[in-house]
Nucleic acid binder design. Structure first.
Length: 833
DNA sequence: AAAGCAAGCTTTTTT
DNA sequence: AGCTTGCTTT
């Protein structure tokens, strides 16, 4: 049977067990994607299952894409009719057909986290729901939890037991859902929740999909939440051919509602389940696996398993500890550079992983310095960047006036002299009449209270209507460029970050990328009828990880979370320090939530097992976090790795981090009694601190204005500190934190010049170089810098610069009447005088 | 009534 | 460091 012979015994068992519930516990790197794809092939080729009856759910679009590709290769025929998609996109697909059964329009829009937040903000304001203890974040969190657990607004309302906060949350939940419905919108959680609701209330719909998906496979099952579980359970209920694949040791999304019990209790829900463990690892060396096993072994309540490999040759795991995060970043960059030069490393097979997005900046700077090409995953998702959201909000407004959030976002962007008060009146008018915000704007004349601003509102409406008219004859790309041009959006961006121009460049480049993206969408073969709504939908569900291409010769920088499911020859885990990883937040809540630390450990496990051959752990003794200097001890996860698996350059690494070595650039360090018998402060002669932050006046830190760095134990109180100093609350002797003194920040040696260059080649978070098939370019305009030109709206001016963009020329004109404007040449339709 | 500026507060992770 | 909020200015 050919292709199945390459599988090991356990893998083969997993492939051949096609019927009934199956739980595959697949350790990291144990070839689970291979198993899944072979299983699909087996179902089709050997069991005569119609591809149409197979559904495979993955976590990210990228994973879905990869699975689809591999299935296509191995199946050959009919592969395209298999549903391979994420939970969210599956649900969208179903809801697009049946949302009307729930009282939504089938063309509902999808709100991202930002959109939901602004909607909720309005609601909280309207009903005065926020208190000192109950903030927006908490309300949103509670509601999200409700949806994850399939608790409806009514059910929640019945269970408030007159608890003060619960009553408020209940009100917020109810109003929020009402508002969503009115806006014909759903948030991420709703997509799953509503699909389950749809299935429960409409047996005919459920049965249709049950009959359709006779064989269901779910990847990354350990990260499903209760609603997702219910979605799957309902679908699989008729034929019970449900195969879930996961690894409880890699469950890292609890904060998002993932319920590790879904995988741990699978056998309780399906007592007849076949359980198969895949423990042979085909990815990493024994040394790396030993380290991973040693770390994860400290967790309780896991399904016992031990990864092993036949790959015995390998280096030890490298450990390097540095004085500062700068040194750490410098090492990573230079080490990668060195290995690359000696031919031992390829950029595309190398990743730097860290706990928080904020850690990327320093590393990024050093990469630029060393000339190492890189790409950053995550941070602010391309589609959550301000400039992109603004432009998309214009497109949404043009597409569908019912989306109040989009309209409000852009009504005064760029500034049109329409302020908060005016908007409030308009909103009240809309509320009274139960009409949309945009419809209210159309009747601005009727709203007495805004009579003074009525003309501005009318101008806005007229502009949007003009776009709608143009939409009929324009391509999407033309429409977007026209929006940018008419609104003077590039101009507005210029005013945004005037302190330094690098951010500005990024933003402009991101706008270029959006144009490329919309053009690529229009020209894509996969879309038969490109529409504005289609584009907006496609864009709504992309995760940042989805855009990584394989072929790029670039080092990837990303969080540990983003790295799940990926593998690299060389992996650097940066910031292996207490309070960084495990995170400060987790350690703070350790008593009330002991499971937090277990999840962090799983995250460490995920990180370590990303490496195939070469793993380097790095840590810094001190680093700047949100304007404070933190002194952290080496991460407990490093200490959990037995010394014999480690190659460490500094044998004294595990002494308390704040005992500085002789070479350290600290002039004075006084010991004070505490857990470690020390703590101290620095003299202010020391200039090695690149502190910044707003500590404009040193009074609260003591007269000396000196540096107060302390090692703290729970009972330690330092009177020189403001009472809000987090240090006094620290309960674990690992934690050492200090505040910087007012000090002239030492010029950071890298900085601007090459950051600016970097923006051109590696646009952070943009799609630079990723969208394929950039089509033909607009011809060079007839005019040049210095020429006098005329514009239909702005009149006559002088061209001050003509810059070549990826798809079009960007022309800057200094108009005699309205000053400088930046626009796209193809759209400005400038006439040379 | 809107825009501009300074102070204050914060997030760890994301479909 | 970045974003929101509140206050002052126009």
């Amino acid at each position: 049977m050919g292709i199945y012979d390459t599988l090991n015994a356990q893998q083969k068992k997993a492939v051949l067990q096609t019927d009934g519930p199956v739980l595959i516990l697949a350790g990291a790197g144990s070839g689970k994607t291979r198993v899944l794809t072979h299983r699909v092939a087996y179902l089709i080729d050997e069991c005569n299952v119609n591809p149409w009856n197979i559904m495979a759910i993955t976590f990210t679009n990228k994973a879905a894409g990869e699975m689809r590709e591999r299935v296509d290769k191995i199946v050959g025929f009919g592969a395209e009719s298999i549903w391979v998609s994420t939970f969210h996109s599956s649900c969208v697909r179903i809801l697009r057909r049946y949302a009307d059964r729930l009282g939504y329009g089938n063309n509902f829009t999808i709100y991202d986290t930002d959109d939901s937040k602004s909607l909720m903000k309005d609601i909280c304001k309207k009903y005065q729901l926020e208190t000192t203890t109950l903030k927006l974040r908490g309300i949103m969190g509670s509601i999200s939890k409700c949806k994850d657990n399939l608790v409806t607004t009514n059910e929640y309302a019945l269970n408030t037991q007159n608890d003060f906060n619960k009553v408020r949350i209940s009100k917020a939940y109810t109003e929020y859902q009402n508002a969503l419905k009115k806006n014909n919108a759903m948030d991420f959680d709703d997509l799953i929740f509503n699909t389950v609701e749809l299935f429960k209330k409409n047996p005919d719909v459920l049965e249709y999909y049950q009959d359709r998906f006779r064989y269901i496979m779910v990847d990354e099952y350990q990260d499903t939440n209760n609603a997702q579980f219910e979605f799957i359970r309902l679908l699989a209920d008729k034929y019970r051919n449900l195969c879930v694949v996961g690894d409880d040791d890699q469950s890292i999304y609890r904060f998002r509602g993932a319920n590790i019990r879904n995988i741990l209790d699978f056998e309780k829900v399906y007592p007849d389940a076949t359980v198969i463990k895949l423990e042979q690892n085909y990815r990493s060396t024994q040394q790396i696996l030993d380290a991973a096993n040693a770390v994860i072994g400290n967790n309780y309540g896991r399904k016992e398993k031990a990864l092993w490999t036949e790959e015995k040759d390998g280096e030890k795991v490298h450990l390097r500890q540095f004085d500062t995060a700068y040194d750490e970043a410098e090492f990573i960059a230079s080490d990668i550079g060195k290995l690359k030069r000696s031919g031992k490393l390829s950029y595309s097979d190398t990743a730097v992983l860290y706990r928080t997005n904020a850690q990327s900046r320093l590393i990024e700077e050093r990469f630029v310095h060393e000339g190492i090409p890189y790409d950053i995953v995550g941070g602010t998702n391309f589609y959550s960047r301000r400039e992109i959201k603004d432009l998309l909000a214009y497109l949404k407004t043009i597409d569908n006036g019912r989306d109040d959030i989009a309209v409000k976002r852009i009504i005064n962007v760029p500034k049109r002299g329409i302020g908060a008060t005016t908007l409030e009146y308009v909103q009240n008018y809309a509320d009274e009449r139960q009409i949309s915000f945009f419809d209210a704007l159309c009747e601005a004349d009727q709203i007495m209270a805004v009579s003074r601003s009525a003309s501005k509102l009318k101008d806005f409406v007229t502009m949007i209507r003009a776009f709608r008219t143009k939409q009929k004859s324009y391509s999407l790309e033309e429409l977007l460029k026209d929006v940018i041009d008419i609104t003077g959006y590039m101009d507005f961006l210029k005013t945004l970050d005037d302190d330094d121009d690098s951010g500005d460049n990024d933003r402009a480049a991101n706008v270029d990328e959006l144009i490329s993206k919309i053009a690529a969408y229009e020209e894509s073969d996969e879309v038969e009828e490109p529409t504005l709504s289609g584009f907006l939908e496609e864009v709504a569900l992309v995760a940042d990880i989805d855009r990584i291409g394989e072929d790029n010769e670039k080092v990837l920088l990303m969080t540990l979370h983003s790295a799940k499911g990926l593998e690299f020859e060389h992996v650097y885990l940066a910031g292996m320090e207490e309070n960084v990883f495990p995170s400060y937040m987790t350690l703070q809540t350790e008593d009330s939530d002991p499971e937090g630390i277990e999840e962090e450990r799983r995250l460490a496990y995920v990180g370590i097992t990303r490496a195939k051959r070469n793993l380097t752990l790095t840590a810094a003794k001190r680093r700047m976090v949100r304007g404070e200097t933190w002194f952290n001890q080496l991460s407990r996860f490093v200490k959990e790795i037995p010394g014999e698996y480690l190659d460490r350059e500094k044998p004294e690494f595990d002494k308390p981090a704040f005992l500085f070595d002789d070479g350290d650039s600290i002039d004075e360090y006084e010991g004070v009694e505490d857990t470690y018998g020390t703590s101290g402060r620095y003299s202010d002669e020391d200039d090695s601190y690149r502190s910044s932050g707003r500590y404009g006046n040193g009074d609260s830190y003591g007269k000396s204005g000196g540096y107060s760095g302390i090692g703290v134990k729970s009972s330690y109180q330092n009177k020189n500190f403001g009472s809000d100093n987090g240090a006094s609350q620290l309960s674990n002797s690992y934690k050492i934190k200090a505040k910087p003194a007012p000090k002239k920040p030492r010029a950071v040696p890298q900085s601007k010049p090459y950051i600016a260059t970097a923006a051109k080649t590696h646009v952070k978070g943009s799609l630079a170089g990723i969208s394929k098939g950039m089509p033909m370019k607009t011809a060079k305009p007839e005019y040049e810098t210095g020429d006098r030109v005329s514009h239909i709206k702005y009149g006559i001016g002088t061209v001050t610069s003509l810059e070549e963009g990826p798809r079009d020329y960007k022309v800057t004109v200094n108009f005699d009447d309205c000053g400088q404007k930046i626009m796209y040449a193809a759209f400005a339709k400038l006439k040379k005088m």
